[in-house]
Amino acid sequence: MKADSLDEFLRGISKLSYPNFDVIIEDNSSSPSYANRLKDYAADWEKKHPGRSFRVVHSGYISEYARDRVVNGRNIIRSIVLNENYDYFFSLEQDVVPPNNIIEELLESKKDVVSGVYFTKKFTPMDKKYVFMAGIAAETTNPVSEKNLILQPIGIDFLFPTRVAEVMYCGLGCVLISRRVLEKITFRYEKLHKAWDDIFFLYGLT
């Protein structure tokens, strides 16, 4: 988790309008000090929300590679969801603050996997820009591309009218995943590829 966005993230969680959810935050930092700070907030949150839990899991700095730590953390939460009979895993990364009714909106779609749309930073050798963390297939004239298709981020026009739309990929920063899917797929990545676990998770759905 990222300390610079913690307060805003926690305020966002406290404003979620869906009445029946528990909170699990996984922290992979090397020191337990950040997790202890979160536990203080969690205890206060539980007092204000009787019957609901807010747990903090300090998984520790298990690897020098960030992808290893992220995948380990997601699979810890996946195991909790499955072992404790939750219906869904709402994956919300700390730099995403969603609308108050986001859980209701995602549940209304009645999909096993459905994502909200959010921005991410994209770095190139020349500059840095923000793109939507979702993509679609687009035609290309490159003869070596399979089926002459490439993946590209969606544009602003794709978002209107407001609807549930099929995409080729999305991030795991604001996504609702059903138990049925989690029973079949674990979070992973492949070291020979630069992609993170979100892309490989979606490959597993196809």
Results as ranks from 00 to 15, higher is better:
Arg74Thr: 09
Asp40Cys: 12
Leu82Lys: 06
Leu82Met: 07
Ala35Arg: 05
Arg55Val: 07
Asn85Cys: 12
Glu84His: 01
Arg69His: 04
Pro98Gln: 01
Ser59His: 11
Arg78Leu: 12
Arg78Met: 15
Ser31Gln: 06
Asn83Arg: 02
Lys47Pro: 09
Glu108Ala: 10
Arg52Glu: 07
Ile25Met: 04
Asp95Lys: 03
Asn83Ala: 03
Ser59Glu: 05
Glu105Phe: 00
Lys47Ile: 15
Gly73Met: 11
Glu105Trp: 06
Ile80Cys: 07
Pro98Gly: 03
Ala66Thr: 14
Asp40Asn: 15
Ile62Leu: 09
Ser33Ala: 07
Ala35Ile: 03
Asn101Thr: 03
Ser91Gln: 04
Val57Ser: 02
Asn36Trp: 13
Val71Met: 04
Ala42Lys: 08
Lys39Ile: 09
Val97Gly: 00
Val97His: 08
Arg69Met: 02
Phe89Cys: 15
Trp45Met: 11
Glu84Gly: 03
Tyr88Met: 12
Gly73Phe: 13
Ile77Leu: 11
Tyr86Ser: 13
His49Asp: 11
Ile103Met: 00
Glu105Lys: 02
Ile77Asp: 10
Glu46Tyr: 13
Pro50Glu: 07
Gly60Asn: 01
Ile103His: 00
Asn85Arg: 15
Ile76Asp: 06
His58Gln: 03
Val70Thr: 11
Val96Ala: 02
Lys39Asp: 07
Leu92Lys: 06
Asn101Gly: 03
Asp40Leu: 09
Ser59Tyr: 06
Ile62Pro: 12
Glu84Val: 01
Gln94Met: 04
Phe90Met: 12
Ser29Phe: 06
Lys39Gln: 10
Asn28Leu: 00
Ser63His: 07
Glu105Gln: 04
Val81Asp: 06
Glu46Cys: 15
Glu93Ala: 14
Arg52Gly: 12
Tyr65Thr: 13
Ile25Thr: 07
Tyr65Ala: 15
Gly51Asp: 04
Tyr86Trp: 02
Ile77Phe: 10
Asp44Pro: 09
